[in-house]
């Protein structure tokens, strides 16, 4: 421990030296991560040979991925590459036409979306799917009540179990709103929130369900740089605090390179490259897909 301390200070000191409190917090987080690294990492999600065909269009072909528990992954690719389709298949919204998806050693290929969600696989949507006519708090309660065992009839008779359950769910939901920084709006209608906060609400809603795997589909789309910066900080925070596995679709390369440990890059329905940030940055096929053929020759 003693000989490790200067090392941790060196690493963390570079990143966070603003205040003592934040330093201490990050130290704790770092040690927590170190402790976790000691254990062997388990596979959270395993995808193999996944394919999706819409009539003539092959949206996704032969995609394989392996996500380990507690890590942050990025899925990048040009528009129409098939990223959203992959998330749709993992969350059960679409049934894949080929391949298998295993979540924690259970085959979830083609399972009903509600069952997949109850196992802890949750997602957000590229085009936002909030319950617009419900209040912000009710939206988050939808996530919080996912594992509730309280039957509908208990609400009719107002049993004490029902009331306690409802109360604790509310508390939990408020906590999630607090984490995302939108607790002040809890009584407003979700549809009336500004766009950036709607995105945060969507994350709060799935966080409330105690998920294991988050699939975030362009969570920073349409935000201004400052907002998206804030959001990235939050995502990093929740990932460490809850020990979540996250698959993030994101277009901002700066964010992806800084935040994610492992990156999958897609083009035209196939994974064309995968690896750590450095490997992806220098991969000629990635550069080709993003900048065109001539650019890749130039860099070579």
């Amino acid at each position: 421990m003693q000989n490790r301390e200067p090392y941790t200070q060196k690493i963390i000191g570079n990143r966070y030296t603003k205040t003592k409190a934040s330093f201490e917090k990050s130290l704790c987080l770092f040690l927590y991560q170190l402790g976790k690294k000691g254990k062997s990492l388990k596979t959270c999600l395993n995808i193999s040979g996944l394919g999706m065909q819409f009539k003539g269009v092959k949206a996704v072909q032969n995609v394989s991925m392996n996500l380990e528990e507690g890590k942050l992954y990025a899925l990048i690719g040009t528009n129409g590459a098939g990223k959203t389709t992959i998330i749709n298949m993992i969350s059960g919204v679409l049934k894949p036409t080929a391949g298998t998806i295993c979540f924690q050693e259970t085959d979830i290929t083609g399972m009903r979306p509600d069952r997949i969600a109850k196992m802890g696989v949750t997602r957000t949507y590229q085009n936002l799917r909030l319950f617009k006519k419900m209040t912000v708090l009710d939206n988050v309660l939808m996530g919080a009540q996912m594992h509730s065992t309280c039957g509908a009839w208990e609400s009719v008779f107002q049993t004490s179990r029902f009331r306690e359950n409802e109360k604790s769910m509310r508390e939990h939901a408020r906590k999630m709103l607090d984490i995302m920084g939108i607790a002040a709006f809890e009584k407003e209608l979700a549809g009336s929130l500004p766009y950036g906060n709607q995105r945060k609400l969507e994350i709060a809603r799935i966080l409330a369900s105690n998920p294991k795997l988050l699939l975030l589909d362009e969570p920073a789309a349409g935000m201004n740089p400052q907002e998206s910066h804030e959001l990235v900080d939050i995502i990093r925070g929740i990932q460490k605090e809850f020990g979540l596995t996250i698959l993030l679709i994101e277009h901002d390369m700066k964010v992806v390179m800084n935040l994610c440990e492992y990156i999958y890059c897609m083009a035209a329905g196939e994974v064309i490259a995968e690896g750590g940030p450095e490997a992806i940055r220098n991969n000629p096929r990635v550069i080709e897909a993003y900048l065109g053929k001539r650019a890749s020759h130039v860099t070579n």
Partner: peptide, 10 residues
Amino acid sequence: DDDVAAQTLG
């Protein structure tokens, strides 16, 4: 309000 979102919330 949104059946797809409701489904993926269990």
